[in-house]
């Protein structure tokens, strides 16, 4: 379909408008994190910083618990991401490439699990974690984050696994590969974009998880970023500079992750397999 100049302008205008809506809050946070406190809290807000300081970052990294929160969050999110990717690949392969009794029922049950909001199962999960002596441990958060990410991750695998031609798998089986070898040497490279999507999804869901982190973690030593940052908002005063510097640094790992894995978001990896 061909678009005229007017059409292109309208499209560019529309996309620009959406981009502004999406990016403005980020700009606000990042630009404010280098403003002096007086400018941040001034009655007339400034879009472009008039002052410049790295004091908030200095304070954040030297004299707050932020580095510890960041490390905890990285451990939990990376752990949850790794486990979710492995389990989603294994479960996806079983659900969408193999045949076993009760397959359909089991798949639906897992999807139903995704329908429950966290708050509904908060109390029973707390009980379970308590019984397992996992309260105030990062492992508890990893388990919870995997549990919540996995149903959707398995569902995400579906489109990618279904697209792998069955002949490719059969050829590998004739070549003497076991099911596990077929999965690791043939299927996984072919569904890499899917696994990358699952990885990003799992990482971001865990990175931003607040509810369970606020309930299951009790000591400052084990707090993750969302809970830790919330702690900056004190009862009587808010250190906005510190808060904004923390928010800025919090987005960094996600940006880095996209930079590394984002390149796998390419279609057409399966071209050349068949036909």
């Amino acid at each position: 379909m061909r678009r005229g100049i007017v059409g292109n302008l309208l499209l560019a205008g529309g996309l620009g408008f959406i981009a502004v809506i999406v990016l403005l809050p980020f700009w606000w946070v990042i630009s404010s994190s280098i403003k002096q406190t007086s400018e941040i809290i001034s009655i007339t807000p400034t879009m472009v910083p008039h002052s410049f300081t790295l004091a908030h970052f200095d304070k954040l990294l030297r004299s707050s618990d932020f580095p510890r929160f960041l490390a905890n969050s990285l451990i939990v999110a990376a752990g949850a991401m790794a486990i979710t990717v492995v389990l989603a690949a294994l479960a996806g392969y079983a659900f969408f490439r193999l045949k076993f009794p009760g397959q359909g029922l089991l798949y639906r049950l897992i999807l139903v699990g995704y329908a429950f909001p966290g708050i509904v199962v908060l109390v029973p999960l707390y009980g379970m974690m308590s019984a397992a002596h996992l309260i105030d441990s990062l492992l508890a958060l990893i388990i919870i984050d995997v549990t919540f990410a996995l149903p959707f991750a398995i569902w995400m695998m579906r489109a990618f696994l279904v697209a792998v031609p069955s002949e490719v798998e059969e050829a590998a089986r004739l070549d003497g590969a076991s099911h596990m070898t077929v999965l690791t040497r043939i299927i996984v490279p072919m569904i890499a974009p899917g696994l990358a999507s699952v990885a990003i999804f799992a990482f971001v869901s865990s990175w931003t998880e607040y509810l369970f982190a606020s309930v299951l973690i009790q000591s400052d030593a084990h707090k993750t970023l969302p809970v830790g940052l919330a702690g900056i908002i004190g009862q009587y005063q808010v250190d906005w500079g510190l808060m904004l510097a923390g928010a800025t640094l919090t987005t960094v790992p996600v940006v880095i992750l996209f930079a590394f894995i984002g390149r796998y978001f390419v279609t057409g990896l399966t071209t050349g397999a068949v036909k």
């Binding site: 031609p165 002949e167 490719v168 059969e170 050829a171 590998a172 089986r173 004739l174 070549d175 003497g176 590969a177 040497r185 043939i186 490279p189 072919m190 990896l269 399966t270 071209t271 050349g272 397999a273 068949v274 036909k275």
Partner: peptide, 27 residues
């Protein structure tokens, strides 16, 4: 299938798309 000492050529070729021709043959 892998233990029958047979090989098969498929209508759709069924090559491993992520491997080079060499690796396809060597697999």
């Amino acid at each position: 299938p892998g233990d029958r000492n047979v090989s098969m050529v498929f209508q759709s070729y069924a090559l491993y798309p992520h491997m080079s021709v060499y690796e396809n043959l060597a697999f």
